[in-house]
Design a protein around this nucleic acid. Structure first.
Length: 159
DNA sequence: GCCAACGTTGGC
DNA sequence: GCCAACGTTGGC
């Protein structure tokens, strides 16, 4: 079993939006970055753990837990001319953009902010989220990092 | 609103 | 294949 962190802007799609989905699942569409796509296409397995991260908001941070809920399949928005994610260069016979479904598990008891993660950079070790200039929207998380973050959840919020 | 980082595009 | 221009991400 592997672990992941997936970013979403809460104004576009938040952890609460995911929780309110009829089956708690949502196709993770709109990813148009090859590295992020490759994680979904090549490495994700049903049942993998997902840290749901709110980006581009105040404060950014991890807000919930989800899991991978489907095998990878073509992103339908790439073929929808009315979608903002439409990609005329994606051939339906050889789809360029691949996604998985994500399923809601639970919200964290409290938000673990990016700042708090930075404060524990030593315990987290080499973490893609904390690397300078990181813009990747999907990244791997080690079992140790996963455990460290859930341990932080149990502690009182920092000042 | 600013700006650093960085991926993509397109001219050559 | 190089690289400047441009667009996007996302923290601050």
């Amino acid at each position: 079993m592997n672990y992941w962190l997936m970013k979403s802007e809460p104004e576009a799609f938040s952890i609460d939006d995911l929780a309110e989905r009829p089956k708690g699942t949502e196709p993770w569409d709109g990813v148009r970055n090859y590295q992020a796509r490759n994680f979904m296409r090549d490495e994700m397995k049903v049942g993998d753990g997902v840290l749901f991260y709110h980006s581009n908001c105040k404060p950014p941070g991890v807000v919930g837990i989800a899991e991978v809920a489907s095998k990878p399949y073509p992103d339908p928005t790439a073929f929808d001319a009315g979608s903002k994610y439409f990609d005329a260069n994606s051939d339906p016979d050889n789809p360029r953009w691949i996604l998985v479904d994500i399923k809601f598990k639970r919200k964290l008891k409290r938000l673990i902010s990016l700042q708090e993660l930075k404060d524990h950079a030593e315990a987290l070790g080499d973490f893609a989220l904390l690397r300078r200039g990181n813009r990747l929207s999907i990244m791997p998380v080690t079992a140790e990092q996963w455990a460290t973050i859930l341990k932080l959840e149990k502690q009182a919020a920092p000042e």
